[in-house]
Simulated scan of single mutants.
Amino acid sequence: MTSTAVPADTLSAIAARRSMMIGYLYAIIGALLFASKGILIKLVYQHGLDAETILTLRMLFSLPFYLVIGIVTVAEYRRIGRALPGIGLVVKSILVGLLGYWLSAYLDFIGLETISAQFERLILYTYPFWVVLFGVAFFGQRAKPTALLGFVVSYAGLALIFTQMTAAPGQDVVFGVLVILGAAIAFALYQLFAKNLIATVGPQLFTCIAMIGAAAIIIGQFALTHPISALAVNHTVLIYSIILAVGTAVLPAFFMNAALQRISAQANATIGMLSPVCTIFLAMGILGEMLTPTDWVGTVLVIAGIAWFTVFDRRKAETTAEAAVN
C-alpha cells in the first residue's frame, strides 16, 4: 500500500484558510469585549468622575498586565533567537499606539460625557468606512463594490437601531458627535498603520509597546490636570475600573491585534460592527432596556452585512493565495 503525500501548495492553502478563520474568531471576540465599554463608562459617570480620571484608572489597572506580558515576550524572543525590534520600530509602535489607545480612547470617553452609549457606538463604528477610505487614498488598497454592499446593509441596520435613540440636536450633542467621529477616524488610522508593524514586531510585543506608551501619556496627562487624591474612588467604581481595564482594554487589544495579523484591516473593522449590536443586548441585561421591532430588524441587517463582507473577504483572500501558489 502506498501513501499519497499532500502537495505543499495544498498544505499552504489549508494553513492560510485556518489562519484566516482564527483571525475572524479573534475579531469577533474583540468586538464582543469592546461592546461593554460604553455601558461601563456610563455607569462610572454616575459617580461623578470625568474622562481623564476614568481613563487613568483603566490604564493603571491594565498596565501591569502589559509589563508582565511584554517582559515574558522579550524573554521568549531571546530564547528562540528572534531579533528584538530596533529603536525605530519601538518609536513607531508607540506613536501608532497613541492613535488607537490614547487619542481615540480619550476622544471616545469625552464624547460619552454628552451623548448616549448607543449613539456613541453608532458614530464610533463608522470607522470601517474610514479604514476603507484612507486605505484607498493612502495605502494603495482597493474597495470592491461587492464588499461595500456589506457596509451599506450594516449601516442601514445601525441607522434603524439608533434612529429612535437620538435626542434633539443641541450644543452638547453636536460636540459629542464631532468628538466621537474624531475617535473613529483616529482608530481607523491606527488599524491601517498597525497592520505592518504587527507583522514585523509580533502582535503581543507590539500591543505591549503601544499600550505602555499610551499609558505613560494618559497618566502624565492626569498628573498635569488632576490631584492624586482624585484617584481615591469608592468600591463600586474600583470594580468597574478593573473590569474596564481587563475586559475592555487588555483582552480586546490582544485579540484585535492577533486578528489584524491574520485578516485584512477592512475585514477586522467590519466584523467589529458586531459591537453596537452586542451593546444593545448588554443594555437589555444590565440596564433593563428592551428591543423594539425596529431594533430587531436593524440587528438582522447588521449581522447580514457583516456575514456578506466576511464571506467576500475570505473568498478574495483564498483566490489571492491560490494565485500565488499557482
Score class of each variant (00 low, 15 high):
residue 2 T to I: 12
residue 3 S to D: 12
residue 6 V to P: 02
residue 10 T to C: 07
residue 11 L to M: 13
residue 12 S to G: 13
residue 14 I to S: 03
residue 19 S to Q: 13
residue 20 M to V: 03
residue 21 M to R: 13
residue 23 G to H: 03
residue 25 L to E: 03
residue 29 I to K: 04
residue 30 G to I: 07
residue 30 G to W: 02
residue 32 L to M: 12
residue 33 L to E: 06
residue 33 L to F: 10
residue 35 A to Q: 08
residue 35 A to F: 01
residue 39 I to Q: 02
residue 44 V to T: 15
residue 50 D to W: 06
residue 56 T to Q: 05
residue 58 R to K: 09
residue 66 Y to S: 09
residue 67 L to I: 15
residue 67 L to C: 10
residue 70 G to V: 10
residue 82 R to Q: 15
residue 90 V to K: 15
residue 94 I to Y: 01
residue 96 V to H: 01
residue 103 L to K: 08
residue 107 L to A: 15
residue 107 L to E: 10
residue 111 G to D: 13
residue 114 T to I: 06
residue 121 R to L: 02
residue 122 L to E: 01
residue 122 L to I: 09
residue 127 Y to R: 00
residue 129 F to S: 13
residue 135 G to H: 01
residue 136 V to D: 03
residue 138 F to K: 08
residue 145 P to N: 05
residue 146 T to Q: 13
residue 148 L to C: 12
residue 149 L to P: 02
residue 153 V to M: 10
residue 159 A to F: 11
residue 159 A to H: 05
residue 161 I to T: 06
residue 164 Q to Y: 04
residue 164 Q to P: 02
residue 164 Q to S: 14
residue 164 Q to G: 08
residue 165 M to L: 12
residue 166 T to P: 00
residue 166 T to Q: 12
residue 169 P to A: 11
residue 169 P to H: 09
residue 170 G to L: 07
residue 175 F to K: 12
residue 176 G to C: 06
residue 176 G to N: 06
residue 177 V to E: 02
residue 180 I to C: 02
residue 191 Q to H: 07
residue 193 F to T: 11
residue 194 A to G: 00
residue 195 K to L: 06
residue 197 L to K: 07
residue 198 I to F: 00
residue 201 V to R: 00
residue 201 V to P: 00
residue 203 P to K: 10
residue 206 F to N: 02
residue 213 G to H: 03
residue 217 I to F: 12
residue 219 I to R: 06
residue 222 F to M: 12
residue 222 F to V: 05
residue 223 A to T: 15
residue 226 H to F: 07
residue 227 P to M: 10
residue 233 V to H: 03
residue 235 H to Y: 09
residue 235 H to T: 15
residue 244 L to Y: 07
residue 252 P to R: 07
residue 256 M to S: 10
residue 257 N to K: 09
residue 257 N to S: 06
residue 261 Q to M: 13
residue 264 S to L: 04
residue 266 Q to N: 15
residue 269 A to L: 06
residue 269 A to H: 08
residue 269 A to E: 06
residue 275 S to R: 08
residue 286 I to C: 07
residue 288 G to S: 07
residue 292 T to C: 04
residue 294 T to D: 07
residue 299 T to R: 03
residue 305 G to S: 06
residue 306 I to M: 02
residue 309 F to Y: 11
residue 318 E to D: 13
residue 319 T to M: 14
residue 322 E to I: 15
